[in-house]
Amino acid sequence: MIELTEPMATAAVRWLSEAEGGRRSGPPTAPVYAATAAFPSPAVTSQDSVELELLSVLVQRIAALPDGRDLANIGFLVPELARPRLHTAAEFVITEGLRTVARAEVRELFPPTEPDV
């Protein structure tokens, strides 16, 4: 995929370093990166054992932020599953298998597009 044509939101994304358990090769360089994402519940603490629902996420870097994070367009392969979890300041993790590779915070939501009739 070359471009994310209908993003659902923008997010500030912090890619974890290899030392933090992130990608050995650093942040992805593909125009649109596909992975999985989970929205941890605010009620979950590090001591809680919980199974998170993983969603397929699409990430397209659009700018570098002054704090070192990336500003990215965010989309989901099944938007209706993600939409209830999305709100400004919502936090989610981006994963590759069981490994968390990035942490993200929603900055802006885009309205749903109207389906073609």
Rank of each mutant, 00 (worst) to 15 (best):
R24T: 13
T45W: 09
L77P: 01
L52P: 01
A34S: 15
L71P: 04
F76A: 02
A43H: 10
S56W: 05
E18Y: 04
I74A: 00
S49V: 07
Q60E: 15
E96D: 08
D48Y: 02
G75S: 08
D67T: 08
T36G: 13
P66H: 05
G22W: 01
D48E: 13
R85P: 03
P40I: 04
A30C: 10
R23A: 14
A38P: 01
E80L: 09
T95F: 12
T5P: 07
G68S: 03
G21P: 00
A30D: 12
A19W: 06
E96V: 15
I2A: 15
E6F: 11
F92L: 11
L71W: 03
S17E: 10
M8R: 11
R23K: 14
L65Q: 06
E91S: 11
S46P: 07
S56N: 06
R83Y: 01
S41K: 03
V78Q: 09
S25D: 14
E18T: 12
L58T: 11
A43T: 14
S46E: 07
G68C: 10
E6H: 15
A19C: 02
T100W: 08
S25R: 04
G21R: 12
I62V: 12
V13I: 15
P40A: 04
A30H: 08
I94Y: 05
V44R: 07
V44F: 07
A34F: 14
V93F: 14
I74H: 06
L98C: 14
P66E: 01
R99N: 14
T10Y: 05
L54D: 04
S49E: 10
F39C: 09
P7L: 08
E91Q: 12
A72R: 03
A34V: 15
L16Y: 07
R14H: 09
G68T: 07
A43P: 00
A9E: 01
E96C: 12
R83Q: 02
T100G: 13
R69P: 05
A9Y: 09
Q47E: 11
A34D: 11
F39W: 09
A63E: 09
E51A: 09
M1F: 13
L52F: 09
V32W: 11
A89N: 13
A64S: 08
E80K: 10
E6S: 15
G22S: 08
P40V: 03
M8C: 12
A34W: 09
G75I: 06
T88I: 12
L81C: 01
T36C: 09
Y33P: 00
D67M: 04
E18G: 06
V13N: 01
R24E: 12
D70K: 02
N73E: 13
P28G: 07
Q60V: 00
S25P: 00
A30S: 15
V78L: 10
P31G: 00
E18W: 05
T36N: 08
G75Y: 02
Y33G: 06
G68D: 04
A43L: 13
L55M: 07
G97N: 14
V93M: 13
A19F: 04
T88G: 04
G75Q: 05
L55F: 01
A30F: 11
P42V: 07
L4G: 10
H87C: 11
R83I: 01
S49R: 13
R85C: 05
L65K: 02
R24C: 02
G22L: 00
H87E: 10
P31E: 11
V59R: 03
G26V: 02
S25G: 05
A37P: 03
W15C: 09
E51T: 10
W15Q: 04
L65G: 01
